Simulated assay, not measured.
Amino acid sequence: MLRKVDKHSGVPAYLQITNMIKSEILLGNLQKGSQLSSIRELQQIFDVNINTVLKALEKLKSEGYIEAEQGVGYFVKKDFDVDKKVIEIIKTCVAKLKDNSIDYYTAILIFEEVWKNE
């Protein structure tokens, strides 16, 4: 879901935009060939400077998620659909974390440590 960036999060706005668009692609909400909204529309959605949007789009382009057609716009380059079973596992995990009153940032720390050690 695309939404305004959180200007108080400490995460650079262009990275927040990159991650939001990347999430939409990974979850299959934006599929191969899908055209992204225009740069001006993205600027309004994210409530940021146009250069911030361009920086995010360039990062997505360099990572292989999107491609640009001059004068036309930006398009999803290929499908990165995540297995639906994986999404369900994550949802179950998040529900258990919340049931145990573990906040988002603590969950991320735990995830990072487990990831490094597996």
Rank of each mutant, 00 (worst) to 15 (best):
N117A: 06
K116N: 09
K84H: 13
Y74D: 01
K4F: 07
K61Q: 12
V82K: 09
A68V: 08
Y14N: 14
M20N: 11
K7W: 07
G10D: 10
A95F: 12
D6W: 09
A56K: 01
S34N: 14
L42A: 01
V114G: 01
Y14V: 10
S9E: 07
K22Q: 05
L27T: 12
Q44I: 14
F80D: 06
I45W: 06
N19E: 06
R3N: 04
V86K: 13
F111Q: 07
L36E: 04
E118Q: 12
I39Y: 00
D47I: 01
K91F: 05
I89G: 03
H8I: 04
I102W: 03
S23F: 11
I108E: 06
Q16C: 00
Y104P: 00
E67V: 10
V82I: 15
K4L: 05
Q44N: 15
V82L: 14
E113L: 08
I17V: 04
Q70H: 09
R40H: 08
E24L: 12
Q44S: 14
I89E: 14
I25S: 03
A95W: 08
I66M: 03
A107F: 10
D103L: 14
Q44H: 14
C93G: 09
K59L: 15
I89P: 02
G73W: 11
S101G: 06
E63N: 09
R40I: 11
S9N: 10
V53N: 02
V86A: 14
I21A: 02
V72G: 01
L27G: 03
G10C: 07
K85E: 15
T92M: 13
V48S: 01
D99T: 09
I90V: 14
E113T: 03
N29T: 10
K4Q: 09
I108P: 00
A56Q: 00
D83N: 15
V94G: 04
Y14I: 08
G28S: 04
G33P: 07
K7P: 00
I89C: 09
A68R: 11
F75P: 03
Y105K: 10
N100G: 04
K91G: 00
L57T: 00
L57R: 04
K4H: 08
K116A: 15
D103G: 13
E69V: 15
E24T: 06
L97D: 01
V114K: 11
L26G: 07
G10Y: 12
S37Y: 11
L60D: 02
I108F: 08
V76H: 10
I25D: 01
Y14H: 15
I25F: 07
V114Y: 11
E63D: 12
K116C: 05
D99H: 09
K91V: 02
I45L: 02
Q31L: 11
Y104D: 05
L109K: 13
I66D: 01
S23A: 15
L57C: 02
S37K: 15
N51V: 11
A68D: 07
T106P: 03
V86D: 06
K98G: 04
G10I: 10
L30K: 12
E88I: 13
L30P: 03
Y14T: 11
K84M: 10
I89F: 10
